[in-house]
Design a protein around this nucleic acid. Structure first.
Lengths: 345, 345
DNA sequence: AACGCCATGGGTAACGTTTCCCGATGTTGC
DNA sequence: GCAACATCGGGAAACGTTACCCATGGCGTT
């Protein structure tokens, strides 16, 4: 029952006393700063481990860094994002930085609140995954803290960007399906509510890439886009609409695997088979696509690569905020599996 | 090109000057502390919004609260966790608290690192979802910061707990399948590597509940457990093993929907049908289970409820650390769908 | 009329760390 | 052999906020 008083935290002062040096020196050791002899280093480090000292990140933040990186993601249900996060962690695990996640639940206001919260907590840098904010807002954020934007097609002197070529990705899908003999290739898109984001969001660019590719293959008249959302429900509803068409499409290109998942269920519900009656292709190549049974043809974006690139860019920008900004654009590839085949008859 | 110098942050001092009051008063307004007249309140608040002041959470943490709650989860791929998180946010959205997530990637050491990182960042409280730490370690953590543990069956005076009755949940499944006429009911479990956690981890308790229920129905001889992991791969591999038995089970009870998902694919790969050849029941009742095509019978744990209960308990404990600890135990229910039916013949 | 109390506002020292500068030693070059 | 220079360590202020405690003035009691 003895509530054993919350043991006072070991601070830099305790370490300094224990090692018989000044707090300044301890601080220098902590940061690997210049001006400490190896002997000093060793002595102080010993004291730190003897006492079980852990730096108080919040206090550090008041003057220097917090060694914290904030990662904003639109939602935690999309299986593509974990890939990016894994990639970022791959890089960050070897450093003193710690990632903390802030999910925005697909709401602009929440995204804003989360981003501000990260800044207010003195995070050293932010990775924003498909943010819904305007370019201006993003630059505003980038003025306050180093920012890397992932999956938005924008270029700015104030922030770094990692994207994949969504136009090329969409073309891979259309070409693949057209090569198989499909003509009625429909697309399930993620509706963009913000008009001014149309040119920078991956979903709209994927849809536009689809249209371009269709026209390039002489299938301009067959263009058919239903705009729902990149989610299981969105895919399900989108596919339902498409299946109800008088001239039902023979292939569906879902803008995200998670939507493809919903589409597959809608197709099964309708008593149709994949790929016998209808082909389905996704985007993101999540592990769900790879696994047995389903075997979804999908576009590999290199999520891990995006994540690790983003982390690297961010670390470099934290080290030098004046550095010229960079944009890394990755090329997608198509992974063909069992869900796509020639059209019936 | 003008890098427009990072605009200095508005601080409490700026607000105080603008409103012609002391910083103390501003601070009081900020915290809704006692001793400020309504007129003062209004004046200060006006200055705050005029200047666009936002409190610096990290600095606050040095003396008081950071208004940050850390939520540790084992991994971000399990679709059950988002339910819990949504539930917690439901409660926290109305407060000044902000949740930040720390995924542990199913590695004990990372979980430890994440938890420490949260403490070092002066978070006001921690929600730990199915932590892999020992009870002693958890109590150690709870001494440093208010803690609510979710989904571990443990009781401690130092921390609050939210669980569901996993024994009852397992019994619901076994009884349902036995009622349908099944005898060879197998279970896919999540292997527990830590021997001393056996009595408190939900996965082991679910497996034990399965055994108890089987014996209670006189099916003790049919008990068949394969221990893999609660993941798509784990479910796939587990089912493969079970399907290779000479006396193949007629029903599989997967300890988590995500594992059931893998099992479904293994069954499809084997050319068998669900529920014609074999019934499958999951656990967690994730939205995946509910959606069309699949129609997975599953155990509803009330993830949202768990999350909101956890958040409430935590807020109360933050307000009063001496408060006696509480344990909330929720009763699971069975949601029957199409994946379970009487055994063949 | 004197007293004490409450409500309100403010002064100041923390909180744990980093940064800026300075002083005391060697060390080097000529 | 002496100035100039590295190198190493420390003192003290600063970061933005809150906690603690005190000062003031108005009011109700006796």
């Amino acid at each position: 029952m003895e509530q054993s008083a919350p043991p006072r935290r070991i601070t830099i002062v305790d370490v300094a006393e224990h090692a018989n040096v000044s707090t300044t020196t301890v601080s220098k050791v902590l940061r690997n700063a210049y001006g400490v002899s190896p002997a000093m280093q060793a002595k102080v480090r010993k004291s730190m481990s003897d006492l079980g000292y852990r730096p108080h990140a919040a206090a550090r933040g008041l003057r220097g860094r917090t060694y914290t990186i904030g990662l904003m993601l639109p939602d935690i249900r999309n299986p593509f994002f974990p890939e990016i996060i894994d990639g970022a962690n791959e890089v960050l695990d070897a450093t003193d930085y710690q990632i903390l996640l802030g999910p925005a639940r697909n709401v602009r206001e929440i995204e804003h609140r989360v981003t501000e919260a990260m800044i207010d907590r003195s995070m050293d840098g932010l990775i924003l995954i498909v943010p819904a904010a305007t370019p201006t807002e993003l630059e505003q954020t980038a003025r306050a803290v180093p920012v890397v934007v992932v999956a938005r097609h924008l270029r700015s002197t104030l922030l770094d960007t990692v994207v994949t070529d969504d136009v090329a990705g969409a073309a891979l899908v259309v070409d693949h399906l057209a090569d198989l003999g499909h003509r009625r290739i429909a697309h399930i898109a993620h509706a963009e509510s913000q008009r001014h984001l149309v040119t920078t969001m991956p979903n709209t660019i994927r849809a536009e890439g689809y249209r371009q590719a269709m026209r390039a293959r002489g299938l301009g008249d067959e263009i058919d886009v239903v705009a729902t959302t990149y989610s299981k429900e969105g895919g399900y509803l989108g596919a339902r609409q498409l299946l109800a068409r008088s001239r039902r499409p023979t292939a569906i290109f879902a803008g995200a695997d998670i939507a493809a998942m919903g589409a597959l269920e809608a197709i099964a519900d309708a008593g149709l088979s994949v790929p016998g009656d209808i082909s389905v292709v996704g985007y993101d190549n999540t592990d769900f696509a790879a696994l047995g049974g389903i075997g979804l043809t999908s576009v590999e974006q290199g999520g891990r690569q995006m994540g690790s690139d983003a982390a690297r860019l961010l670390l470099e920008r934290i080290d030098d905020r004046a550095k010229p900004s960079r944009l890394i654009s990755l090329s997608p590839t198509l992974v063909v599996r069992r869900s796509s085949a020639p059209p019936p008859r």
